[in-house]
Amino acid sequence: MKLAKNILYMALPLAMAAVPSLASAQSLLNVSYDPTREFYREYNAAFEAHWKAEGHGPVRLESSHGGSGSQARAVIDGLDAQVVTLALAGDIDAIANATDKIPADWQSRLPHGSAPYTSTIVFLVREGNPKGIRDWGDLVQDGVEVITPNPKTSGAARWSYLAAWAWAERNGQDPAGFVGNLYKHVPVLDSGARGSTTTFTQRGIGDVLLAWENEAWLALDELGDDQFDIVVPSMSILAEPSVALVEGNADDEAQHALAAEYLQYLYSPEAQALAMKNYYRAWDASAADPEDVARLPALDLVTIADFGGWAKAQPEHFGDGGTFDQIYTAR
């Protein structure tokens, strides 16, 4: 009996931790990728106002950020997110495949293939571009150090990898050879885009950072445009960060409705303007500041469809034994 009592006492704190908090406000967790921190901070405030204006009660909106692949894994392992806004469709597919919390046809449920905003990959170089980097081909010059995260864990790195691949293909080079050579110029592989930005800007490593366009602009904003320059290469890739409702994690109808509206509102002119203010290439410029729109130059962009979609590109390039693995095994 004594033992049972003791075990009971020990188990009590555990049981208490397991009981969900009975807060009255509705809550929503948005699991997102690395460089969207600033955008979703503003968007959450805007959405909260919108939600209240529609006559609903208070909401508690939370966002979690990290490498896109790690975030997807956290959701697969049970992180209670009602909404995922990840760097690429492939990571949401992974959740849909591994759990039944997201329907297989999620991508067709929202406009523009469930990509409310897009971006691309540009180069961030040190002030004055001392190594004279103008295009993808310049990245493999002798003595150039390239900073990019690990494509296995980072969305930005996968888009960069494919953009480099497409450039090589279009310029008559062997794409696998070119990309392999490119990665020989990488001294640090961080797990996420924000980590790489820190390595490049704060630690002073590398000559060029392959960055999300919005992340590159953000770096200029935060750290001063007298330290870094943005170089727009001759071509890049249309990066389509995707969003989806995690149906299986919505506790009830009310939370489901909240999550659905949270995603739908991303397509409103106000939210699209907010995305452009945060250097994303959004679809609807009607409410945006013309200055914000003009900052993002028209660019020759390949799309993931040119690679046969993520269902094909993911295993071919980033799966176990894919082209990326071969770079580090064949030496």
């Binding site: 490498g67 692949g69 894994r73 690990n150 980033f318 799966g319 580090y328």
Partner: peptide, 17 residues
């Protein structure tokens, strides 16, 4: 093969599902 420790490789494998 140069500066990748085994615990990190475990995490990378997890993130590849």
């Amino acid at each position: 093969n140069r500066t990748e420790i085994a615990p990190l490789l475990i995490v990378i494998r997890l993130e590849e599902f």
